[in-house]
Nucleic acid binder design. Sequence first.
DNA 1: TTGAAAGCGCTACCAT
DNA 2: ATGGTAGCGCTTTCAA
Lengths: 385, 385
Amino acid sequence: MARIPNEQAARRQAARRQAARPPAGPPVPAPAGPPDGPAGGAAAAATGSAVLTGAPTSTDVARLAGVSRATVSYVLNNTTTMRISEATRQRVLAAAEEIGYVPHAAARSLRAGHSRMVLMPAPNVPLGALYGGFLGDLQQALGRSEYTVVQYGGVGRTGDDAARAWAEFRPVAVLAPAGHGLGPWGVALLKRSGARAVLTLGPERVDGAHALLTDHRKVGRCAATHLLERGRTALGLIVPGERGLEAVSHAIAAGMRHALADSGVPGATLTEVPLDRTEEAAARLASRWRGLGLDGVFAHNDEYAMLLMRALQDEGVAVPAQTAVMGADDLLLGRLLRPRLSTVRISLPSAQTLAALVDRLVNTPGGQPEVHDLLRATAVRREST
Amino acid sequence: MARIPNEQAARRQAARRQAARPPAGPPVPAPAGPPDGPAGGAAAAATGSAVLTGAPTSTDVARLAGVSRATVSYVLNNTTTMRISEATRQRVLAAAEEIGYVPHAAARSLRAGHSRMVLMPAPNVPLGALYGGFLGDLQQALGRSEYTVVQYGGVGRTGDDAARAWAEFRPVAVLAPAGHGLGPWGVALLKRSGARAVLTLGPERVDGAHALLTDHRKVGRCAATHLLERGRTALGLIVPGERGLEAVSHAIAAGMRHALADSGVPGATLTEVPLDRTEEAAARLASRWRGLGLDGVFAHNDEYAMLLMRALQDEGVAVPAQTAVMGADDLLLGRLLRPRLSTVRISLPSAQTLAALVDRLVNTPGGQPEVHDLLRATAVRREST
DNA sequence: TTGAAAGCGCTACCAT
DNA sequence: ATGGTAGCGCTTTCAA
């Protein structure tokens, strides 16, 4: 709320006073000093190119080309129902080019009553390279269709507040990563605000929204199964200290427990072991490792796995002989340590597939909420298990 | 352009016909069937709560509360110049709550003549964890001020096209990562469209825009200087095969050459060595390594450095005795290999600092373009050099 | 083939 | 203290 609007308002009034179109006397005798002019362009350029101030509008183009705003709109949107003479077309296009006209997206979508915006609230938890890259790809894929993908970086807002903020944009679809606390109320609000599809991306579904599930229990189950197959029964799970990863860790732990229960291996156990992402923490953990009596450990991701494995080796704990170590995400770097790190490879659907899904959901609204399982986990055995 | 607008238009006309306000006979005798209704809400809810279709507008709130749209606006915006009775306030707030009213951002900024949107076009080159995290932080920091940060994922567009697409949003500021081919023309267009600050983020400046420089020559200079100090003179630079990293590589190479020239070490040389990001490529390179005759190599980032170092060790090349290896980015994982990887630590200003800068530039437009050097490089010697 | 005009949802000026 | 209302920039129907 600076002083700009007022400046512009004043300028606009002045401009308007002399804005009687050159040809054809104006039917309105005098514009009758408008009570207010909020803001906006209306450049004073008469016909020649001048220093424009404020964004040029279609009115400016029309004036320069000597046609009406309607004609400008027809030409610039290639309207097929109206046939415009080639000469006019060219004049309009030249005028638009000359003054650097760019249509005003907000005005356009206000008039249209809908937008082609797909809103992706920025995730507010630190997501690894895997999901980060995936979201980027998805964004690209959606952009390739004719949606305008917008990642909204609203911070601090959660739950209903966040939903309200998103709804202000009147997006045609919302793709919300977990961690914003979007609930059924928010989903309903978004839908009422014109969203034709609301999707959540994360471990659990939300009433009324479509769900792209990332069920990390699968990862835990996969890891535990692998370790059991390798003959390990006293299993550990490294739980990262980073904020925002708790949910994933819990899911993984649950998956491991399921696998243990299903396996029927008698006496198999699972111990959760916290670990910060520093060398010192790893060394400390390694120093008391033998006391834990674990013969197999899964580490949430390759980075933690490598951190631990190195610390164990420095402590003289043989890998995999004494303790098998397994990571997840199949990072390239996991192959550089010795022994090479066994890992759970997580694969997600292609971004194109998902973009197509979003497109379909937008175009067939009103259907039942759909649930899609995104995540596939496969064990990759290398040398550390 | 689906069939929706027409449906809504029809519904709207119907709604309007019966929308005469309950109290106080309407001064206008008959609404005189409007020639057109583009789209939009206008729910048919008379007074009681009903199934609303389309987004509720401030008109709906006003009707339900029995006040005018103006009053609604005053209450919802906490306008201080107008004093509204507490009773009215509460009625309006309750009504807004009841029907789930959310203001229409596009309409608001259209009226206001400006937006608080900071547009960050999504980078279209693969950027590492360092810059990715940095951009994320910056987005958060800007969001914490009162800007609405929006990352725009327009694909395929470059140069003037991209600038035009961005300008449609009428952002108050644009923060464009390198790789979009933004040129002086685009900058001017954005400014004319209302952007009060245009910033580029990357290795080179653009006429008319402020520049946040990431001068990777510093990284090269730092690495080369370090290697020279360690007594190496036949230097190599690993050049990644990934697309989009060429510019960075060139800058690093240039920086290394500068360092070589400045050092005055006679006979010091620099060889650029391409390497793909796979174990196989690294093994192949390692097998012909002795033929290259290099005694020190800098690897663009820690990942490539680790890849190479492992391959060299597998080939029997002693590190650092026969060849010193240095990486960049100071990844945690670099400390897990043996020998521990020496690295160039790259530090960037805090996101808060930069957010404050953007804020200042927005609030003092018209100033000369500023150039800020973001990058600081420091050598961290570990055991591989 | 072109123009006049209405109105999307919102805010702010002016009058009551 | 509250309401009427103009108009931001745009598209589109209807009339000429």
